[in-house]
């Protein structure tokens, strides 16, 4: 009876076990990491908007505080998208005739809001609340990045759960004083380790167990 398998089949069989594991692992790694790339999270990708609104101009050049437009960021879950009226506070006079603001003027005349493209959109099962973060010392730029350098808006963070948890597990390194909350170029001072601990105490920040409990964010 002739040999059914050549001698090399032994090596091949062993190799296929290793190779199979490597390929399966590779596929898993690929899927996991692919979901963290900007291709999926859209991070650093500027979104087209109906009006080319520039945070760089309004925040960076003009020095307008975030809360001039995002008025409810300290009181409610939503930071508050400004009404067209807020635009018209200035643009009834400044750039009052330029064509690219016609959409704003049309919205003002008709009373129909402008349809902006949302940049930061969490899934509905995450109950994110701006006010608690802002009131407990998490500044705007910690999550939104240097908005004062963005001509069109993009997200600098993945907005994935692992990113949320990175702070919820250890919030101290990013905590700041209330007077610095909207400061765009804030960087942790050299003694942040000490300050962060003091601020966590001052803001009465809950334990890691509470901050990472499922029902803190999912209800």
């Amino acid at each position: 009876m002739p040999q059914l398998f050549p001698r090399s089949a032994n090596t091949l069989a062993r190799l296929s076990i290793v190779l199979g594991a490597v390929i399966a692992g590779g596929v898993l790694l690929f899927i996991l990491n692919f979901n963290r790339t900007p291709y999926v999270t859209q991070a650093f990708i500027a979104r087209e908007q109906p009006v080319q609104f520039s945070h760089k101009h309004h925040v960076g050049d003009d020095g307008i505080d975030c809360r001039y437009c995002h008025t409810t960021v300290e009181q409610t879950a939503s930071a508050g998208l400004p009404a067209t009226k807020t635009c018209m506070n200035c643009h009834s006079q400044l750039f009052a005739n330029v064509p690219y603001l016609e959409i704003v003027r049309e919205s003002w005349r008709s009373g129909k809001p402008i349809k902006w493209t949302r940049v930061h959109d969490l899934p509905d099962f995450a109950y994110f609340n701006h006010s608690i973060h802002v009131n407990k010392g998490v500044g705007c730029s910690t999550c939104h990045g240097r908005v004062d350098l963005m001509p069109l808006m993009w997200n600098t963070q993945s907005l994935q759960m692992e990113w949320c948890l990175s702070c919820h597990r250890n919030p101290e390194p990013i905590l700041r004083e209330q007077s610095d909350i909207t400061k765009m170029d804030w960087e942790a001072p050299a003694d942040q380790a000490v300050r962060g601990r003091e601020l966590a105490k001052k803001y009465n920040i809950q334990s890691t167990q509470v901050l990472t409990s499922c029902s803190t964010c999912h209800r």
Binding site: D62, G63, I64, D65, R67, Y68, C90, Q93, L94
Partner: peptide
Amino acid sequence: NISCLPCHGALGDGNGMIALRGI
């Protein structure tokens, strides 16, 4: 400083950034 300063200026003298820009 949030709502008024852009036009009225930090001193309230009317020299805010938006006023300087032409409002």
